[in-house]
C-alpha cells in the first residue's frame, strides 16, 4: 500500500483547541443552540481514508466552512480535498454525510459540498453527495459501509 498512496506526505495543519466550557453549559435552565463549532466538532475527528490523520489535521474541514442555522434547521459544510485530483473526495464527503446523519437531529437539512474551485470534478462529486437515493444505495453496499465506518471510528474505541 506504501507505493499507491495518492498523497504520501501531506501538509499537517494545527489543530483547534477543545471547545471551552462556560458556566451556561452546566446550567439546566439555559438552552444551548446547535452552532457552527458544535457541528465542526462532530466532523473534525473523522479519520482520513489513507493517512492516520484526521480531516482537521489535513485542513480538509475547518470551522469557517461550517454553516449552521439551528432555527431554520439547515447545515451546510464545504470541504477541501488535499489535492485537486484526490480520488478520495467522494468517500470523504460520504463519511461526513453519514457522521451527521447519525449525530444530528433529523429535523436538519444537511448539505455537504466541495469548496468551490478546489477539485477537478467538483460538480460531479457534489451531485453524487446531494442525491439522497445514491447515498442510501451506497450505504447498502457492505464493503463501502465498512470503509466509511473505519473513517468514523473514534480513536478511543480503536484502543
Amino acid at each position: 500500500m506504501g507505493d499507491s498512496l495518492i498523497n504520501a506526505n501531506p501538509i499537517i495543519y494545527e489543530k483547534t483547541g477543545e471547545r471551552v466550557l462556560e458556566q451556561d453549559d452546566f446550567d439546566d435552565n439555559v438552552e444551548d443552540k446547535i452552532d457552527n463549532r458544535e457541528v465542526f466538532d462532530l466532523i473534525r475527528n473523522i479519520n482520513d481514508p489513507e493517512h492516520p490523520l484526521t480531516l482537521e489535521d489535513l485542513n480538509v474541514v475547518d470551522c469557517d466552512n461550517v454553516h449552521v442555522n439551528d432555527d431554520e434547521n439547515s447545515v451546510e459544510i464545504l470541504f477541501t480535498p488535499t489535492i485537486p485530483h484526490c480520488s478520495m473526495a467522494t468517500l470523504i464527503g460520504l463519511s461526513i454525510r453519514v457522521k451527521l446523519l447519525r449525530s444530528l437531529p433529523p429535523r436538519f437539512k444537511v448539505d455537504v459540498k466541495i469548496s468551490p474551485g478546489t477539485h477537478a470534478s467538483e460538480e460531479a462529486v457534489n451531485k453524487q453527495l446531494a442525491d439522497k437515493e445514491r447515498v442510501a444505495a451506497a450505504l447498502e453496499n457492505s464493503h463501502l459501509l465498512s470503509v466509511v465506518n473505519q473513517c468514523l471510528k473514534s480513536k478511543r474505541s480503536s484502543g
Binding site: L21, D32, E38, S103, P105, N149
Partner: peptide
C-alpha cells in the same frame, strides 16, 4: 435519536458518542 436534539450541548455530545458506539460496536 430524540436525545440528539437535547437542549443542552453536553448531553448532545454524550448522545452522539453513545449512539456512535452502539452503531459501530460490531466493527
Amino acid at each position: 435519536v430524540p436525545v440528539l436534539d437535547d437542549r443542552k450541548r453536553l448531553v448532545r455530545n454524550e448522545a452522539v458518542i453513545a449512539r456512535q458506539e452502539w452503531i459501530l460496536m460490531d466493527m
